[in-house]
C-alpha cells in the first residue's frame, strides 16, 4: 500500500491543473472539462485513489493520454522485452561476478586482485551510456560485429533476438558485474578473517576444504544478498541502456511517457518497475535469512 502513495501524492501536488498542463494553456474550457471528466479529476481525491487502485489491481491501467490505447496493451510486450534483457544479463553477470569475486578474495593483494579492483572501480564510476557508446564505437562502428540499435519485434526467433541485444546485454553485464564482484569480494574477505576460519586452519584441514566447507556456507548469506540487490539494480539499469540502444522495453516507454507527460503510462510502468524492485529486495531479505545458519536453526 505504501508503495502506491508517493506518485499519487505527486499528482495531487501538481502545480496548477493537470488538464491544463497536458492540454496546454490554449485549450478551450470544453476540452479541459472533457479531459477532467475522463481522468475523473472532478471527483474528490480519495475516491479517485480508491477507484484507480481497484482498477490497477484488476489489471486495468486506464488509457494512454497520448494515443488513447489501453496502457496494459502498450506495456505488456515491452515489459517482456525488458525482462528478456535483464534476464540474459543476469545469466552472464551473476556467475562471472561471483567467481571473480571469490578469486579476488582468495588471492587478495596479488597483481590479479589489484587489476580487478582497478577495473571494477573504474567501471562503477562510468555512466552506463559511456560504457554503451564505447562498446558501440568499438564493436559496431570500428568492427561491425553487432548492431548498434537493438531493434526487436515479435516475429524474430530467439536467436535473432539474442543477437540483437548483444551490445545492451554486454553493457549492463559489465556495470552489474563490477558492483557485484566488489561486494562479493568484500563479503568473502570478511568471512575469511573470522576466528572459525583460523580454527579450521589450525585443525590441519586442506585449504580447499576450509574454503568450500567452512567459508562458503557462511558466505552464502551475504553473497546471495549481494546478488539479489544487484538484480534489483539491474531492473533499473535497463532504463538508460534501453534508451541508448533504442530497445523497445519498458524503460524507454517510461522515459518517452515522462517527456510527453502521459501520466497513466508513467504510473503503470513506474509501478511495475517499483514492484519488481521491491520483490527482488524482499527476495534478498528472505534468502539471506534462509541461508544464514544462525537464523535457520534458532535456539
Amino acid at each position: 500500500m505504501g508503495d502506491l502513495r508517493p506518485d499519487f501524492v505527486g499528482i495531487e501536488a501538481l502545480p496548477g491543473d493537470l488538464a491544463e498542463a497536458v492540454l496546454g494553456q490554449s485549450a478551450t474550457p470544453e476540452t479541459v472539462a472533457a479531459f477532467r471528466k475522463e481522468l475523473k479529476l472532478d471527483l474528490p481525491p480519495h475516491v479517485r485513489y480508491v477507484a484507480w487502485l481497484g482498477a490497477f489491481v484488476r489489471g486495468d491501467f486506464g488509457n494512454s493520454l497520448a494515443n488513447r490505447r489501453p496502457v496494459a496493451d502498450l506495456i505488456s510486450w515491452r515489459f517482456a522485452n525488458s525482462l528478456l534483457l535483464a534476464g540474459v544479463t543476469a545469466l552472464i553477470a551473476v556467475p562471472v561476478a561471483v567467481i571473480l569475486g571469490i578469486l579476488a578474495a582468495l588471492y587478495r593483494n596479488t597483481v590479479f586482485d589489484r587489476l580487478i579492483s582497478m577495473a571494477t572501480l573504474s567501471t562503477i564510476s562510468f555512466p552506463e551510456f559511456f560504457v554503451a557508446y564505447i562498446l558501440i564505437a568499438l564493436l559496431s562502428v570500428r568492427v561491425a560485429l553487432f548492431p548498434s540499435i537493438a531493434n526487436i519485434n515479435a516475429d524474430m526467433t530467439l536467436g535473432q533476438k539474442l543477437y540483437a541485444i548483444c551490445l545492451p546485454c554486454l553493457t549492463l553485464a559489465m556495470v552489474v558485474t563490477a558492483h557485484m564482484m566488489r561486494q562479493t569480494r568484500a563479503a568473502i574477505i570478511n568471512i575469511l578473517a573470522s576466528p572459525f576460519i583460523e580454527m579450521a586452519n589450525l585443525k590441519g584441514l586442506r585449504r580447499l576444504r576450509v574454503v568450500v566447507l567452512h567459508a562458503f556456507p557462511n558466505a552464502l548469506s551475504p553473497v546471495i544478498n549481494v546478488i539479489a540487490l544487484n538484480l534489483a539494480y539491474l531492473v533499473v539499469g535497463v532504463v538508460i541502456v534501453e534508451v541508448v540502444f533504442v530497445y523497445p522495453g519498458l524503460g524507454q516507454l517510461l522515459v518517452d511517457s515522462v517527456s510527453k507527460r502521459d501520466i497513466p503510462v508513467v504510473q503503470a510502468s513506474g509501478l511495475i518497475f517499483a514492484a519488481t524492485y521491491v520483490m527482488l529486495n524482499l527476495l534478498a531479505d528472505v534468502l539471506s535469512i534462509v541461508s544464514n545458519p544462525r537464523l535457520r536453526n534458532p535456539r
Partner: peptide
C-alpha cells in the same frame, strides 16, 4: 523505508513527470 522501497531513478522520473 517507504521512500527507499522505490528505485531512485524510477521515483525521480515519476515525480519529474508531474512537477516538470
Amino acid at each position: 523505508d517507504i521512500l527507499m522501497a522505490f528505485p531512485t531513478l524510477i521515483f525521480a522520473l515519476m515525480v519529474l513527470s508531474v512537477v516538470g
